[in-house]
Design a protein around this nucleic acid. Structure first.
Lengths: 106, 106
DNA sequence: TATGAATATTCATATATATGAATTTAACTA
DNA sequence: TAGTTAAATTCATATATATGAATATTCATA
């Protein structure tokens, strides 16, 4: 049955329901970063960033590498970025469509 | 700022956090279907399917067309299916990777 | 081993979501 | 217009998630 895969799919998508996690994902686009890097660049409390990173790691969206006191996080699979980009395009297209509609009405 | 787009992106991803909605999306892959079609093919109560379709429609994942007593639902943008497919591939790849790992250990 | 810097965890609370049951609304047809 | 089928809504309840504050853990180095 596909049931199990739908559940797993739903589960991993929960990762993407937080703006902060999406921001983290976007920041990791260019390569690996430490927890502190991410806390600074987002302006979010370190503890909270760490919590979000835990969610990302538990769902295999990121992988980690420890180097001394630092832990480096990176995107586990480039297809994740592709999927995110596609959804962003869908949003942009919809916004553009609504804008066109608004102009036509006015 | 990107903040708004992250929030919108997070919002639309909430749609994909339900196995039932993912199943509905997959059933709509081949073309439009009525609420009843979907209720039958999933074995889910009509009211519940309708609730999920409301979520899908509110987030512009599907569009509707009424024909008499029937309401036909279809995927609003093919990129949504592409994004879903990519995430599914990520899952499959991860499963395959874990399987390989399991074999190597045993 | 004591200190400091980097990460992670726990806990309490507020908020959001999913579901079934019951009801309502909408549209067709006899 | 009464009855029927299709779809949507409301409501109550159970469950999940996000957050900040406080605390703990990990690792390097003096």
């Amino acid at each position: 049955m596909n049931k199990k895969i739908y559940e797993m799919h739903a589960q991993i998508c929960k990762v993407f329901t937080s703006p902060k996690r999406l921001e983290i994902i976007n920041l990791l686009r260019d390569g690996e970063k430490t927890v502190n890097d991410l806390a600074e660049q987002t302006g979010v409390l370190q503890a909270n960033i760490s919590q979000h990173l835990t969610v990302l790691r538990q769902n295999n969206v990121v992988t980690t590498r420890r180097d001394g006191a630092n832990v480096y996080y990176k995107i586990a699979n480039p297809k994740i970025l592709q999927a995110c980009d596609l959804m962003r395009e869908v949003l942009i297209e919809k916004l553009a469509e609504n804008e066109t509609l608004a102009k036509r009405i006015s």
